[in-house]
């Protein structure tokens, strides 16, 4: 980084970002590097999270702020389930071990997921940060998230001098992004669970980036001894059926047993991202309250319907149903009816 920036070195941050090989991590590094409040940014690839190397890096660069953005939801793109668990859970342990030994780190931000809350018929409709998490959530990614958050809580207890923030992100969506969710909605016929229409919530990827950026450079000191948790999601909800319609797709309601068979068969194989926690999500949905983020950090992601509209526009999803609306300059439906049943339009 050039040393010609106006702010004094002492007040400027040196940030380490993990998951630099992923879209969000890479973008975050770019945006932080462009921020005058940041002196230097160090990126760490997801596969390179070993505590010895991380420790040396933290010391050499005198890193004061660590953003752990490497926890990934997709098993397929992590190179299989065992690689995913390795980087999610073991990677987090290595990072936290290195942070614990560091005497320069003052702030740690962990990118987590709303998957932490699970999804079931017994859950409240809207999760707040105070909602108690289940000890053993169902599904592999949910289990990873539970472990990551548990280790993070342990770290916060041991290093009371470090401000620890956990951001629980809703599923990401964006105009150009390629996530398991965007691929799901791009299927011409979208499988759903017969008899269930879950409420879904998304987070626009640009908003995720902005929230991460802002929270990373925030100067508040949190509660010593425990992480400060924030839900990050686009307010409002869509029903899954509604989202599928808005994307111009057709839903294929499928009996749960059949989907369960697929999910079980997909387990351990590196073909499709479909697991039991996703099946639960497709039945019960997951909605969080992100009022706390707004109150504390004065930032609100764009509403879920807007984020989804941007995804639909960006992916130029062609309606499989054909154009739903009559052309604006052609006769309206009412006019056409009047033509057929033979009345003079009274001008409405």
């Amino acid at each position: 980084m050039p040393h010609s920036k106006p702010t004094a070195r002492s007040s400027r941050r040196t940030v380490m970002v993990t998951g630099s090989d992923r879209y969000l991590g890479g973008q975050l590094i770019e945006s932080l590097a462009a921020d005058p409040r940041v002196a230097d940014v160090v990126g760490v690839e997801t596969g390179a999270m070993h505590n010895g190397a991380l420790s040396r890096l933290l010391t050499r660069a005198r890193v004061d702020t660590v953003v752990h953005a490497a926890v990934a939801a997709s098993a397929v793109r992590s190179g299989g389930r065992s690689a995913q668990k390795e980087s999610n859970v073991i990677g987090t342990m290595h990072l936290l071990a290195a942070c614990q030994r560091s005497d320069t780190v003052r702030s740690l931000v962990v990118k987590s997921s709303v998957a932490a809350y699970g999804a079931s018929a017994r859950d409240p409709a809207v999760f707040t940060e105070e909602t108690e998490l289940r000890a053993k959530p169902r599904g592999e990614f949910a289990a990873d998230i539970a472990d990551v958050e548990a280790y993070t809580r342990g770290f916060a207890r041991r290093r009371k001098d470090v401000t620890v923030t956990v951001l629980r992100l809703a599923p990401l969506i964006g105009p150009t992004s390629d996530t398991s969710l965007t691929r799901y909605f791009s299927l011409p016929v979208v499988p759903t669970v017969l008899g269930f229409d879950p409420r879904v919530q998304f987070l626009h990827i640009d908003d995720a980036l902005e929230v991460l950026h802002r929270v990373t450079l925030d100067d508040r000191t949190g509660t010593a001894g425990r992480p400060e948790v924030f839900n990050v999601a686009g307010p409002g909800v869509l029903l899954l059926s509604q989202a599928i319609r808005r994307a111009g797709r057709l839903a294929a309601p499928t009996p749960e047993v059949m989907l369960r068979t697929v999910a079980t068969a997909a387990r351990g194989r590196n073909i499709v991202d479909f697991s039991l926690d996703q099946l639960d999500f497709l039945r019960f949905g997951r909605v969080v309250d992100c009022g706390k983020l707004t109150r504390v950090h004065h930032i609100t992601p764009r509403p879920t319907p807007e984020a989804f509209a941007d995804f639909v526009a960006g992916h130029a999803l062609m309606s499989v149903l054909g154009a739903p609306d009559p052309t604006p300059d052609g006769p309206s439906f009412a006019e056409r009816i009047r033509d057929v049943i033979g009345t003079k339009g009274t001008g409405d």
Binding site: A125, V126, D197, R199, G236, V237, L238, L239, S241, Q242, A243, I244, R245, R246, G285, V287, P305, L321, P324, D325, F333, A334
Partner: peptide, 20 residues
């Protein structure tokens, strides 16, 4: 017709509890 096309294109609102 308007109602049906609104429903088919997903152009309606539900609240956070799923009330339509």
């Amino acid at each position: 017709y308007r109602l049906v096309s609104r429903r088919l294109s997903g152009d309606y609102e539900v609240d956070e509890f799923g009330f339509d």
